[in-house]
Amino acid sequence: MDRVIEKVKKEEKMVIERSKMSVENLSAWFGDKQALFNINIELFENKVTAIIGPSGCGKSTFIRNLNRLHETISGAKVSGKVYLDGRDIFDHNCCDVVTLRRRVGMVFQKPTPFPTMTIYENVAAGIKLYGKKPKGKLDQIVEQILKQAALWDEVKDVLYKPGPSLSGGQQQRLCIARALAIEPEVILLDEPCSALDPISTAKIEELIHKLKQNYTIIIVTHNMQQAARVADYTAFFLLGEMIEFEVTSKIFTAPQDKRTEDYVTGRFG
């Protein structure tokens, strides 16, 4: 693992990256079926890391472990360590799961605005979990967050309409806004564009570019062009194992592993 990081650093010829999340020997199971095998990876601060690989390779399971959502499925098990700023998220003495999920936000594949809530309420939903705020202050935060999510101009006149009345792409940006509203440090994106059209996808990718100045972003995608466009680092997963982790350009131009090469050149997957 250290070797890989060294290589990464050399390749970039830049200041040493700060590791925001560090994963050690992470394995995960659904019942008896093992879905992840000894994953080791560093997720660097203020960088976008893409996880690519064919369907069923464990990439979603992997990021669902970073906010411990994997464990909520009945029969799911996990072993190994995941450090967030040097502290193990599975260690019950140091971190509770609510605080973890507040620091590590997540956006899902299908846009999931809360259907009975307005756009405004959707953005405010997470904020309200952490204590009441005066209405004026809340208004301010909602506006600021929606601007951050590049959605404000499109929704400022329909704030009190239900979330699902928006288009798919807008709904997904609303979900990003909802995740941003609780001021996370890391954002997990689980195939955020796979249900969207190209224009909406472009908007989300633009947003990812903007957001990485303030957040550490991990994006799962089965779209290799997307990984190439948005990610600084890319990890290739296959059958529950991490095959290769490199600077994105390297993964796509000079992959070390034959399997990575086969995948990125479109020979399978």
Binding site: N67, L69, T72, R101, K110, Y130, R178, A179, I182
Partner: peptide
């Protein structure tokens, strides 16, 4: 109620 709605709430840190 769709499972992904529950997960969205859980991911926000809801109990």
């Amino acid at each position: 109620v769709p499972h992904n709605l529950r997960e969205s709430a859980l991911a926000l840190g809801a109990t």
